[in-house]
Write a protein that binds this DNA or RNA. Sequence first.
DNA 1: TATATTTACCTAACAGTGTTAGACAGTACT
DNA 2: AGTACTGTCTAACACTGTTAGGTAAATATA
Lengths: 240, 240
Amino acid sequence: MEPVDKPTSVLSPQERRQRNREEMQGAILEAARQVMREQGVAALSLREVARRVKMQAPSLYAYYPSKTALYDALFLEGIRTYVSFRNSITAGHTSFWDILHTWVETYMRFAQEHPELYQLCFERPVPGFVPSEASMEASHRLLAGSEEILAEAIANREIRLDLPNNQARDLVIAMMHGLTSQHMANEPNLPVGSGRYGRLIPAAVALFRAAWEPGQTAAQGPHSPNHQDSGGSAGKEVGD
Amino acid sequence: MEPVDKPTSVLSPQERRQRNREEMQGAILEAARQVMREQGVAALSLREVARRVKMQAPSLYAYYPSKTALYDALFLEGIRTYVSFRNSITAGHTSFWDILHTWVETYMRFAQEHPELYQLCFERPVPGFVPSEASMEASHRLLAGSEEILAEAIANREIRLDLPNNQARDLVIAMMHGLTSQHMANEPNLPVGSGRYGRLIPAAVALFRAAWEPGQTAAQGPHSPNHQDSGGSAGKEVGD
DNA sequence: TATATTTACCTAACAGTGTTAGACAGTACT
DNA sequence: AGTACTGTCTAACACTGTTAGGTAAATATA
């Protein structure tokens, strides 16, 4: 009465192998994130990771060829996670200032909910670690998206800049990162919106608004503002 | 006919000892800074330091009781060095905007000229390291000075803030740190004033100026949107 | 001056790290 | 059945911060 055919719905050996491999890789990544969260990003220990996935340390090398490679996989996971955070920014908002507010808030929330990924991706805590080409490319795609938000706002006449788009974007990024970095360094456990730096998001938005909202007469900097350099700022070119 | 008395101008044994001790401590600090600059702040190795001062590693423990203590001494040296940078800011400037410009520029220059001290003091690169009470106190005195600059500018009616002094100060710090942090992460070798983030200092100053200079009708924060100028065409109320 | 103490260094060792080499069982393919 | 491959292991190397204990010289004391 048993089915005579081998049920083809069950996985083939190769598929089983690949699935096991992926599960193991995932488990290693998860364990590594735990360790980083507990002991600090730069204090990640392969032997500790191995202990948690119930292996000996050298066995990890079957999945990641070096500690740097593991960091790189984590970097990529961080970028991907942040992208999913950032994709929810524009949803439901119409005003540029709403979006800017949410943008900064989301960045800080990402840092707070995934401090180990934030540090790995946006600070530089690991001495020897430099992300691979592939990972950097993912990171650059991220930047490109940021400029689009600004470009759209300009197209909608919501803001009027006295400097190139990419510079405006970098100014926003600097403020966003500065606030978040200080928040995480000083009061990493306080929720977004509270704490010495966490509460400054509205004030930061107001600052940009005062300078960029049309109808305001924007003051110039003390030194001649060079807003005609770096041609082709509105294009897709991002890093220089 | 030589002087019978031991010439008292030469150092006493105790003085000699103390001088040697201090010289040794200084040499260790200097070697440690070199190593940090070459290999990264978190990659500091006591054995490498010992090698450079021509000692065995355990001998360092006669001068600093632990690696953390060495980090702490370096932290203090960093704060002191930065203070001497910052004390030169106000010299020769009268306008608040000049001062603000120099302030940011000096912060970035400090980071560039002493990257190892900058990272140790203003980023958080060493997993287990927390500065001692005494060092933190020096660090706090630093902050207090920053607020004075703002308070003076307000007293002189040079700026008009729509938020408390300390919050304004933190906003400036966030921008300053954000710019510098990005500059150091991306183009640490480019001089201050150039590079993707390094050149944004005037733009950043202009941003604050547009918002805080009296005579400008500054937009208010999202919580009290009572900006009564320039019809609310695009500027919908930025609620939270 | 002779003795005792303190100082400044040393070597040896422990437990931890990332990483490589080589072995061995079990699975899969021919 | 025999061969190749996979996944995991142990042993080992060179490195790390740190502790314990020893030794020779410099200093202080009698």
